[in-house]
Design a protein around this nucleic acid. Structure first.
Lengths: 242, 242
DNA sequence: CGTGCCGTTGACGATATTCAAGTGCAGTGG
DNA sequence: CCACTGCACTTGAATATCGTCAACGGCACG
């Protein structure tokens, strides 16, 4: 019923029911390339990702765009966001996306529940840690290392939600998206990607990534997964389908 | 008594007392270039900045360093950080720093108090927004725009805590720090800084910045302060000295 | 069978890094 | 008082990385 990360581990029955009810109240679907919420909008609800990929991004007035993070199933878009007068960034769907809108009142109730509240706070810390790692990635690493790092991170996150099959996973971004996420132009992204391919680190074709050599990829990226803090605390396992 | 941003606006007497007690319990001082906490340490307390500048940073194994954010008086280093097994970044003092260590128990009590709890959550959102802006800054802007942006942001933050005098403020970073914060080499930082100076946008000499043309600086940086969400909701005013 | 988006390529120029050397200044100790 | 030291800042030249512009091919979709 719930995507893996939204299961929040073993909740007491009362909390589990609270969570499921909150997530059932208002489920929405949106098509790719549509915005879930835009910069300057007044935030009204917290969004819990149920299925599909979305992204957080900012756009400068001259058109430059920075993708700030990706939302995978089970992620929470903006905990506590009600406290803000207006959004300082946008959230857009990459694929078809299903998400649950959680009202301010419902969110408060979830945050008050001891287990769920702690999980929400923990998730928030992980989200912040990932954002910091992206800053480091873009600030310090070369284009080549940067892409390698993003693929390592995504691999680990996808594994945590049981989405790895044969060392590969679905990766619905265009090369332009990839470039905007790593702070390079799409032309340079394309060339850098080719280098990753021809050095035998990975394949990327028709929206699917296969990691050919995780060890070397990790080395190139100087990737250390500690900042994910055992993201979801779930190792590779069958996804929760019920 | 409390630095401006830690005043949390108008608190009911009970909460104000709670806050002051929590901040009085353990006040520490540390010299410049010392670490307050290091990556891989187990976090035990939340640190509330009382005086001086500190920074959050990450170091790669080959020595490259990314400065992730600055802590000014009144900032909170790591709310909720107890939930993490270990630190994924370090916090270092830039100047002499005075800070209050808040225990897990005390922090919980603060977070439970309605007004303070909301303030803490709000501050956390602003911290995240700043981190996102840094990602955007480093990812999309040129070196020249990037430095301009950092100075704009710092100007606004310093103004919010009443630290602007004659369009200038104390700025204790070396050029190497500045470069590590904006993802460039110190040599390039130096040259870029010279350009900012000779175009009449600002002066930077002996650890003090004077903004000569805020309007043009804002333009160059494409700076929009919306992401600060009226950081502290305090306009320029005399600092709270009591 | 067009149309549009995505990926790819080449040539060129701009931006940023590297390496190395030198200046200025503050603090230290003789 | 002055040499000595260390650090921050500055400069130049050579190089590497990355961006811009423009064009073309493939493929899906209508």
């Amino acid at each position: 019923m719930l995507p893996r990360l939204l299961s929040f581990g073993n909740l007491p029955p009362y909390e589990r029911q609270l969570l499921e009810q909150a997530l059932r109240r208002k489920v929405r679907t949106i098509g790719p390339h549509k915005d879930i919420i835009r910069e300057r909008d007044k935030p009204r609800v917290a969004n819990f990702m149920l299925d599909g990929w979305a992204m957080r991004y900012k756009q400068l007035s001259d058109g430059r765009r920075q993708i700030l993070s990706f939302f995978l199933p089970g992620d929470i878009c903006d905990a506590n966001v009600f406290l803000l007068d207006e959004m300082d960034h946008s959230i857009g769907a990459i694929t078809h996306v299903t998400y649950a809108e959680v009202s301010h009142a419902d969110f408060e109730a979830l945050a008050q529940a001891p287990e769920i509240g702690a999980c929400l706070a923990f998730r928030n810390l992980v989200t912040m840690a990932i954002q910091r790692e992206w800053t480091t990635n873009i600030g310090q690493r070369s284009a080549y290392e940067r892409l390698a790092h993003l693929f390592c991170e995504t691999f680990h996150r996808m594994r945590a939600i049981g989405q790895i099959r044969d060392d590969g996973f679905s990766f619905p971004l265009t090369q332009t998206d990839l470039a905007d996420a790593t702070g390079m132009t799409s032309v340079h992204g394309n060339r850098t990607l080719q280098r990753l391919r021809c050095e035998g680190l990975l394949e990327l074709k028709s929206r699917r990534i296969v990691v050919r050599d995780l060890e070397r990829l990790t080395q190139v990226a100087q990737f250390t997964p500690n900042y994910l803090h055992a993201y979801g605390a779930v190792k590779q396992a069958a996804p929760e389908i019920s």
